[in-house]
Design a protein around this nucleic acid. Structure first.
Lengths: 113, 113
DNA sequence: GATCGACAAGTAGCGTTGCTACGCATGAAG
DNA sequence: CTTCATGCGTAGCAACGCTACTTGTCGATC
């Protein structure tokens, strides 16, 4: 799927993934791919900058852990992030309802008798 | 609502509006505002360039009409535009289903009697 | 008569955002 | 030793919608 359509919703997705528990970048990518049934296969160049954006915004926090000599930066949701997620969810609902009204998400605008 | 979240879906909305019949730019804006319950209030600077984009892509066609001395460019859906709209609808469904899976979802789509 | 607001179309420039392509490092497998 | 998977990161690009502005007619108001 055209991932660029995510525009503006990626942050919400990341927060939603982190809501289930702390994860490091790579794991987040895999979680997105798994939970979306392979539809969302985002490159690292998309995820990492996005995570740093979220961290700068205070919505996630990161801690370094060295596992087997490999540096892993684990991100977790902050309180502000949790609150933001609530808002994002509401925003998504409104958005999808609005667009759905035009694109006939499930109810095509074919005039009922 | 944050209209910038439209990213990539605006074209589909415009096609959907024109599906109901030819309209000129201004009328399209009003149709969007009306059908969305005021949620979508897009500025002309968003609509006009988008329409020209669609025309360049051959998805809509325009004709000038002078009404009361006022120039109105009326757009209508082309065949290609109609076909594109079908694809956009499918794309929207996949997109909204995928994101909905993460953002918790108001999932009314499966409403089998 | 002049001005203001609604209608109607358009352009220029900007900022956000995700993508592509690349670089760097470690451990395991061949 | 080379290659691959894991893991993090940056630089530059392109797409898209927004803000702000311009042009022009018409009707109403001052």
């Amino acid at each position: 799927m055209k991932a660029q359509a995510l525009h503006g919703h990626l942050d919400a997705l990341l927060l939603a993934v982190l809501e289930q528990g702390p994860r490091h970048g790579y794991a987040i990518i895999e979680a997105l791919r798994a939970r979306s049934g392979g539809t969302l296969d985002l490159p690292t160049g998309t995820i990492y900058p996005a995570l740093r954006r979220l961290e700068r915004a205070g919505l996630v926090a990161s801690t370094w852990s060295t596992v087997n000599g490999r540096e892993r930066r684990t991100y977790e949701l902050t309180e502000a992030g949790g609150r933001a997620l609530v808002g994002e969810r509401a925003g998504w609902r409104e958005f999808s309802a609005t667009v759905g009204r035009f694109l006939g998400a499930d109810e095509p605008p074919t005039a009922p008798a």
